[in-house]
Design a binder for these strands. Structure first.
Length: 478
RNA sequence: GGCGGCAUAGCCAAGUGGCUAAGGCAGCGGUCUGCAAAACCGUUAUUCACCGGUUCGAAUCCGGUUGCCGCCUCCA
């Protein structure tokens, strides 16, 4: 079986073959750290987290690089507004990013370089571009000349004429061509600065990704990812710089995730319709959010709404209830083995093979989630039929293999339910158990009226009772 | 203006040439239960925005229409 990925550069799905068999180099554009991240950032981070997990589960050795843009106009502007040091702002939001990602279960990348750590490399690259005739300096600014790069526009599928026709940007008189872009920006008073052959200044935005990707992955590497909005101009420019300066092919597969929208409109700072990860986690359990963001194919826009998220929550809860039942029957899962082992060489017609089949097809997590639910129904059926412990263990291992690639089902079932309840309000376990005892006495006396009244009262408190052969248990009404 | 994407049941969402159009949520009927809850079983799109065309055969390919969205400017 082979993995297929949609390559934005060719606008079609392609069979994925890494440059070096068995090894994958993957670079994903991270965030500019001037504010808290919103759930659009979360989608991107989660999609590429799943891609790296999946590639590893399929036996590839992955080197995953995700950068931080920690020097940039927006950071400088924010610092000025707040009367603070730009470096402090960047550090603060890098910390916030790590906290948010940890809560969402997004694993750290193998390398998380910051732009400011690679200024020397950027200066070297700019010098090379000037020597090769791709860049020119004007009053301490250095620009890339897009006309010098014949292939400019090939990645995003644009023609230079089209670009000019729609341009609304105020043209910088220093530029030879309005779409030339800054490689180096001369520092204005009070701005962060580094010494360079063109005087003090800072790098343009696109430089960092070119330099850091080649530093960690080489001049030609396998996967370059990011949000769809980065395709132009950011990725087009990165590519133009890198190929012009280094030769090589730069990224071989370009993978772009779609946006999170609200009321069908892109979530963005300028529209003011964004929801930060933090705010979302006040209301929704991290795994609910994660499953929601994976419930639609990564390339299509995903509309965020409370109803849609809560629907997924109901579904995830059902999966956890099945895990709870399993635990009661066959005990807790073993934790000392690689959960994804079942995906390595799955036998045809089995659940792991089906899962691999849909994931191989351009990371179809939506279909994968569907398979997960089918498997859950089957496991419940098997438990109703009373099959052997060995079979149930096998079934659970298969389920957990898929779940671990998606990064869900990481909690104990009880913790998950209580976690949901925490968002809805706190429950007093002692009082609840007291009332359950009273109800048990009433039931013993066949006083159904009293028993039902107590149950109703608990329901109002947000507690659901379940009478089973082993007595009554309770769970939060979520 | 240029380029691109999307339109599948009450809602969310897979499926891109051929068995009965996945799955989730919600609803309804049933099994189980003192009654519930949970779980399971059954059920809910003769039809895939609309109009043409290609084909033995299309939700899937082609042309057109409508609607929504994105990129072209910092943006995941």
């Amino acid at each position: 079986m082979t993995i297929k990925l949609y390559n934005t550069a060719s606008r079609r799905k392609e069979i994925f073959e890494p440059l070096e068999p068995g090894r994958v180099g993957m670079y994903v554009c991270g965030v500019t750290v001037y504010d808290l991240c919103h759930i659009g950032h979360a989608r991107s981070a989660i999609v590429f987290d799943v891609l790296s997990r999946y590639l590893r589960a399929r036996g590839f050795e992955v080197t995953y690089v995700r950068n931080f843009t920690d020097v940039d106009d927006k950071i400088i502007e924010r610092a000025r507004e707040m009367g603070r040091d730009p470096g402090d702002i960047a550090r603060e939001y890098i910390r916030a990013f790590h906290e948010d990602m940890a809560r969402l279960g997004v694993a750290p990348a193998d390398h998380e370089p910051k732009a400011t750590e690679h200024i020397d490399g950027m200066i070297r690259m700019i010098r090379t571009l000037m020597e090769k005739g791709f860049a020119y300096e004007v009053d301490g600014d250095v620009f890339y000349s897009i006309e010098a790069f014949r292939d400019y526009g090939a990645l995003s599928g644009r023609k230079m004429e089209d670009l000019q026709a729609g341009s609304r940007v105020a043209v910088d008189a220093k530029k030879k061509n309005p779409h030339d872009f800054a490689l180096w920006k001369a520092a204005k008073p009070g701005e962060p600065r580094w010494e360079s052959p063109w005087g003090p200044g800072r790098p343009g935005w696109h430089m960092e990704c070119s330099v850091m990707s080649s530093h960690f992955l080489g001049n030609t590497f396998d996967i370059h990812g990011g949000g769809r909005d980065l395709l132009f101009p950011h990725h087009e420019n990165e590519r133009a710089q890198s190929i012009a300066a280094n030769g090589g092919g730069f990224a071989r597969y370009w993978v772009h995730n779609g946006f999170v929208t609200v009321d069908s409109e892109k979530m963005s700072k300028s529209l003011g319709n964004f929801l930060t990860i933090r705010d979302a986690l006040e209301t929704y359990h991290p795994e609910v959010l994660r499953l929601f963001l994976l419930s639609k194919h990564y390339r299509t826009p995903l509309d965020f709404s409370r109803e849609a998220v809560m629907d997924l929550q109901a579904g995830l809860l059902r999966i956890y209830r099945t895990l709870q039942r399993l635990e009661e029957r066959i005990g807790s899962p073993k934790t000392d083995q690689d959960p994804t082992g079942a995906l390595r060489n799955p036998a045809e017609g089995t659940f792991p093979a089906d899962f691999v089949g849909v994931m191989d097809d351009d990371l179809n997590t939506a279909a994968a989630v569907g398979l997960l639910f089918e498997k859950v129904r089957e496991i419940n059926r098997l438990m109703d039929e009373g099959v052997s412990k060995e079979l149930l263990e096998k079934e659970r291992d298969d389920l957990m293999a898929a779940a671990s690639v998606l990064g869900i089902l990481r909690e104990s079932p009880r913790d998950f339910e209580l976690g949901l309840a925490e968002a809805a309000g706190r429950l007093d376990a002692g009082k609840i158990e007291d009332m359950i005892r009273q109800r048990a006495e009433a039931r013993k006396a066949r006083d159904w009226k009293t028993a039902d009244a107590i149950r109703d009262r608990l329901k109002e408190m947000g507690v659901i009772l379940e009478d089973g052969p082993g007595g009554t248990t309770w769970r939060p009404d979520v």
